[in-house]
C-alpha cells in the first residue's frame, strides 16, 4: 500500500503543531518532560513508544482536553499553525474546532449516521449562516465519501450510528471531523479496537487523507507506524527521544533507546 515516499517537500515555514519545552503534570506526577517537537503540515507523523510513555498525554495537550481534570498543570507552549493554544485570549472552542481528535475506541454519538456527520458543522453554522438541508446533504455525502464509507451507508443514513461495525464507526468518527475543517487531526491509536481487516481499511483511509490534512497518529504498533506514516517520533518515559523520517527511523535509528525499542527490547 505504501509507495516509496515522494521527496518530502522542504519543511513548511510554519509547522502544523509546535511544542516548545512542553511539560505536563498530573498532580505531582510529571508525565511530559520539556518536549520539543515540530509536526510538519500536510504530512502524517506517527508517535510511537512503550505504553505509559505519554503519547496520549501529548496528543491531548494539543486540544486541551486534559483540562477537564482539575489537577493538570502545564509548562512551555504548544502552537498550532503558529498560534499558542494555551494563550488566554484564544477561545478553547476555536482551538478544538481547528484540532480534531479520533479516539482509541470509536465514540460515535447516540444519533443517526447523518446527524453524527453533520453534528460538528451544525454547531458552527447557526443563526443567519445556517446551512440548508440540501447543503447539509452535500456536506454529509462529501465527508462520507472522503472516508470511503459512503457506499456502505448511503441507504441507511438515518439509522443509528452505533449499529455500524467498529471499523465503520471509526471511519464515521473521522468523517464527522471533516465538515468542521480542522487544520490538524489527532489520532490516538485509532485502530487498536479493530480487527486486522478494519485496521487495514482505516490505515488506507488515513493515507488517503494525507496532504489535505496534517495527521498526528499515535500507535502502539510499529508495523503500523512504518506503513502509515512519513515521519516518526519516538517517546520514552515522557521525553521526546527522536524525530526522523519513518524510513530512517526503522533502518538507522539515531539513538540507542530507539533501536532497543524497535528491536522489541521493551514493549
Amino acid at each position: 500500500m505504501v509507495e516509496p515516499t515522494p521527496a518530502v517537500p522542504a519543511a513548511a515555514a510554519e509547522p502544523a503543531a509546535r511544542f516548545t519545552g512542553f511539560s505536563l503534570w498530573y498532580g505531582t506526577f510529571q508525565a511530559l518532560y520539556g518536549v520539543d517537537l515540530q509536526v510538519e503540515a500536510g504530512r502524517i507523523t506517527s508517535l510511537i513508544g512503550p505504553s505509559g510513555c505519554g503519547k496520549s498525554t501529548l496528543l491531548r495537550s494539543v486540544n486541551r482536553i486534559n483540562e477537564r481534570l482539575g489537577y493538570v498543570r502545564t509548562e512551555g507552549a504548544v502552537a498550532v499553525h503558529g498560534v499558542d493554544v494555551y494563550a488566554a485570549q484564544n477561545a478553547l472552542v476555536q482551538v478544538r474546532k481547528q484540532v480534531g481528535m479520533v479516539f482509541q475506541r470509536p465514540n460515535v454519538l447516540p444519533l443517526s449516521i447523518r446527524d453524527n456527520v453533520i453534528f460538528g458543522h451544525r454547531l458552527h453554522s447557526r443563526g443567519a449562516g445556517r446551512t440548508t438541508r440540501a447543503d447539509e446533504d452535500a456536506i454529509v455525502e462529501g465527508a462520507l465519501r472522503q472516508v470511503l464509507l459512503w457506499d456502505d451507508v448511503k441507504d441507511r443514513l438515518n439509522r443509528r450510528a452505533a449499529g455500524l461495525s467498529l471499523e465503520q464507526q471509526q471511519k464515521l468518527c473521522i468523517a464527522r471531523l471533516l465538515p468542521v475543517k480542522p487544520r490538524l487531526l489527532l489520532m490516538d491509536e485509532p485502530c487498536s479496537a479493530l480487527d486486522p481487516k478494519g485496521t487495514e481499511a482505516v490505515e488506507e483511509l488515513i493515507w488517503e487523507l494525507r496532504g489535505e490534512y496534517t495527521i498526528l497518529l499515535v500507535t502502539h504498533n510499529m508495523a503500523q507506524a512504518r506503513r502509515a506514516s512519513e515521519s516518526c517520533v519516538f517517546m520514552l518515559l515522557g521525553k521526546m527521544i527522536e524525530h526522523t523520517p519513518t524510513d530512517e527511523m526503522f533502518v538507522t535509528p539515531q539513538r540507542q533507546e530507539t533501536a532497543d525499542y524497535i528491536e522489541g527490547r521493551y514493549g
Binding site: N63, I65, V93, Q94, R96, K97, V99, G100, M101, F103, R105, N107, V108, L109, P110, F119, G120, L123, H124, C173, R176, L177, V180
Partner: peptide
C-alpha cells in the same frame, strides 16, 4: 458515557451545547 462528551468537545462544542 464520558466518550460522548469528549466527542462533542472535540468538534468545538461548548459545554452547554
Amino acid at each position: 458515557p464520558h466518550a460522548f462528551r469528549e466527542a462533542c468537545w472535540n468538534m468545538g462544542a461548548t459545554r452547554w451545547q
